[in-house]
Amino acid sequence: MAQNDRTAFVMRDRGWHPRPYAPAYKTTVARSPQQSLVSLQTPTASELTGPDFDNFVLGPVDNDLLLNFRPGTDRDGLPIGERIIVYGRVVDQYNKPVPGTLVEIWQANAGGRYRHKKDAYMAPLDPNFGGVGRTVTDADGWYRFRTIKPGPYPWPNDVNSWRPAHIHVSVMGPAISTRLITQLYFEGDPLIPLCPIMHTLNDPDAIDTLVARLDKAGSRPMDSLAYRFDIVTRGALQTYFENQG
């Protein structure tokens, strides 16, 4: 956006975000910095700008995970699993829509298996499911994907750790200050309170904001259930440099 270099953002609340060092999630022990982060008292254009994706060319089924792994095939080629619509709005902390932001998702298939060279879980790959999607929010901040509900999967942490069903969600833009990668969970999943990665969050309300809600009204009869997941990015403080006088 043209105004990028005139906008600063509400300070990031690092007590609300997950703790970088969280020993119950074992990989964090060797991968979390031990020194304090250095706070920038005066953000510069380097932090207050970022790529804008208005002219980035997306494919017609990039946001349709039911079709995008084998585009052009007919209904026989659909993935196995619960068909769902995942949609919502990207807004900032002042509830202002964030248009033109790149939303990217990736997920396991219905059996909990990722299409990744390094995933060796015994659940089979689905020949009709890649598990990746992307879209750009519209003028009012809305985004929308069609996919299948991912399955939970085991992972090597404790001897018997399972991830709740989840979709990884990346939001890029308008500035690198607002860069965010998070995960979407599903209402009612009994694995949520048992997950060591959820326990990296201090506040139960923070977990709650990552749980997509079943939206019966948004579902398509005889076709797909809908889940609503709104994403909040850092609040834009306008005309920052002008105020510096």
Partner: peptide, 30 residues
């Protein structure tokens, strides 16, 4: 003022979404 959505780890399979060739997925046009 709403709180920012909390971050979560990108996980070991981040490439599926953001670096497709490294995951072994066919790249899209762009």
């Amino acid at each position: 003022m709403y709180p920012e959505s909390p971050s979560q780890t990108a996980g070991p399979y981040v490439h599926i979404g953001l670096a497709l060739e490294v995951a072994g997925l066919p790249p899209r046009d762009d």
